[in-house]
Design a protein around this nucleic acid. Structure first.
Lengths: 345, 345
DNA sequence: GGCATTTTTGGTAGCGCTACCAAAACGATG
DNA sequence: CATCGTTTTGGTAGCGCTACCAAAAATGCC
């Protein structure tokens, strides 16, 4: 065997095909290959063809890490949400993913468990990946996190919640308005003894915003808006069923329950089915989200539907617009919601 | 003002604090700072303290991209699944995320829509991020994809499906056995005219595996196992309801329906509730997955429960074991399943 | 105390790619 | 055909970090 070059290949150099290999094979400079990969129209047709052939022949796959280090971003979009066990966020992520999937951007997933300190730490970490942009749930963040996000000079889209001020762009719903809307509906339907049921309200301030809207509307109508039940568990069907029974025990005269999401509300209806409690005759039930299950229940659930998937799509579009060079003031979008009145109220 | 160094800072150098800045501030060599960040116990206490102070003082956040380029991996774990709208995968991802979250690894999300070519392309892309390892759904891949995964010399965990041969490690369930198990239960319960209902069976071969197990078991018992209904939509409650009615129309003498997942089965029960069809007296319904909803229905759904979250946890553990230097043959785990008999059969 | 051994620290080079500028090739114009 | 402007191509340096080796300091042992 021939004496192999000694001393070369010091690092790993695992034998992966590099841009330089392609360049050599095509008989051009590395930078030309780079151009073919990233800005094909800057290269003459002849050379482009030649390079593309070399790429195919060698099975070259660009090292995005090296590219990311040399240039600006890595075509990674971190998405930071409170939880991956809550369907809402999953739907939004799905919308983002679907919109980004053919643009060459990849989602980096992070969850904070509703903890703003954890969120700040996570932001630091993901900024270490030189992301092209970032999507993050909520408008409230630690001061440090906001500074870092502003300093990184990259598009930032804040989602879920629509509000007056944002770091860069914002897509979401007005939670207080959602609470008001459903409360108004219940009042108009003639219900007077209404409780609000939430979960994890200590941490999830968007639930609090909805509750406050609800309360405000009831008090405007001269009704006691302070009837509140909450617990600290995840919003499962089971929890919904239990909270339903607890609410009726706590306030025996109740004629309606406004749940902070459809999971709990559906759990309540399923529990009512099991126990033979009649909804809405014995007690009305309302939810929030517009989950697919809501319309399949008996009785079908009155709910406020939020276009979660579309919210993700819009967030991704804002991000792409910024990445596409769109400058100027904040891109903002109130994605809206729809009151869907069904048989449960 | 002093004349600023001309010619320096050619690239962006956005002013981010670098490892070199920290080194200067602490009066040590850059490599020492690197060690403090990555292998603290290789550095004396004195210097370590000094460096840590400098890190805090300057607010240094490591550039993982640069680190990834210089060394092996980027502490990114791509997770490639068929779909983000299917709860099963979400639960698994959640398990992975939870297990990895405090280890400094970040999830990179990719979905293939059950398309193996798309999967192969996605694998190429994510390998461009020099990931530390990779988690991917399924044991069947394009030849090219398998080659790339083997060539990348990184831990690969194949999930969802448990089988004889895998690239590196494997955590999953035996789908055919699941199909057999539920079919056996139905036969033992005395049902004889049984249909199987699936969706997207053209693409989701794991559903086919369950169906084949089901069919095999029925035919072993001398029962016609070929009664099959399928469609191409996503497995929603609505679809389940519709398929339920279609199945009863196609095979009017049916006494049981074996659905390929709980979404469809739940949709069937909800539809039955709406129409006053009695389950299981008029017709029995069985599912697969063990979704939380299954036990809240009336009647509660008989299902095969799969520890999805735990599957994710186990996959992440295998990955961490490999990353921790564990060598040797394939790490394999049949995560198992549990037949949960409830009122619907 | 002298020597070998271990631990701690630092210098140099390079991971694979792209920004920046300069050179070359090409076209158009009078 | 010379001049100018435009497009296409290439050379050089460097993104921020870590691998590798070597030097320095600390430790152990006879």
């Amino acid at each position: 065997m021939g004496k192999t070059e000694r001393g070369r290949r010091r690092h790993k150099g695992v034998g992966r095909v590099t841009l330089g290999d392609v360049a050599k094979h095509a008989g051009v400079a590395p930078i030309t290959v780079s151009r073919v990969m990233n800005n094909p129209d800057q290269v003459s047709e002849k050379l482009r063809k030649r390079v593309e052939q070399a790429v195919d022949a060698l099975g070259y796959v660009p090292n995005l890490i090296a590219g990311g280090l040399a240039s600006a971003g890595t075509r990674v979009i971190p998405v930071i949400v409170p939880s991956l066990s809550i369907l809402t966020y999953i739907d939004v992520i799905h919308g983002i993913q679907q919109t980004l999937e053919d643009t060459g951007y990849q989602l980096l997933l992070g969850s904070t468990d509703f903890d703003l300190d954890r969120e700040a730490a996570l932001i630091d970490t993901v900024l270490g990946y030189s992301p092209s942009g970032i999507i993050i749930a909520g408008l409230r963040h630690r001061e440090r996190a906001i500074q870092r996000l502003e300093a990184c000079q990259r598009p930032v889209v804040e989602i879920m919640e629509y509000g007056a001020s944002c770091i860069d762009s914002n897509v979401g719903v007005d939670n207080a308005e959602v609470g008001r809307c459903m409360a108004r509906h219940l009042v108009e339907r003639g219900y007077r003894r209404i409780a609000y049921v939430g979960s994890r309200m200590d941490r999830d301030y968007r639930t609090i915003q909805r509750y406050e809207g609800h309360r405000e509307m009831l008090e405007l109508a001269g009704i006691d808006g302070s009837r509140l039940l909450q617990n600290d568990e995840a919003a499962s069907y089971k929890t919904g069923g239990r909270l339903f029974m607890e609410a009726m025990a706590s306030y025996p005269d109740l004629d309606a329950i406004h749940f902070t999401n459809d999971n709990l509300a559906a759990g309540a209806i399923l529990e009512a089915n099991r126990r033979g409690i009649r909804v809405p005759d014995d007690i009305a039930v309302a939810g929030y989200l517009g989950l697919p299950l809501s319309e399949c229940l008996t009785p079908a659930l009155t709910t406020v539907s939020v276009p979660r998937f579309e919210m993700g799509v819009q967030a991704a579009k804002f991000l792409l617009a910024r990445l596409d060079g769109e400058q100027g003031e904040a891109l903002r979008c109130d994605i809206g919601f729809e009151l869907i009145v069904r048989d449960s109220t």
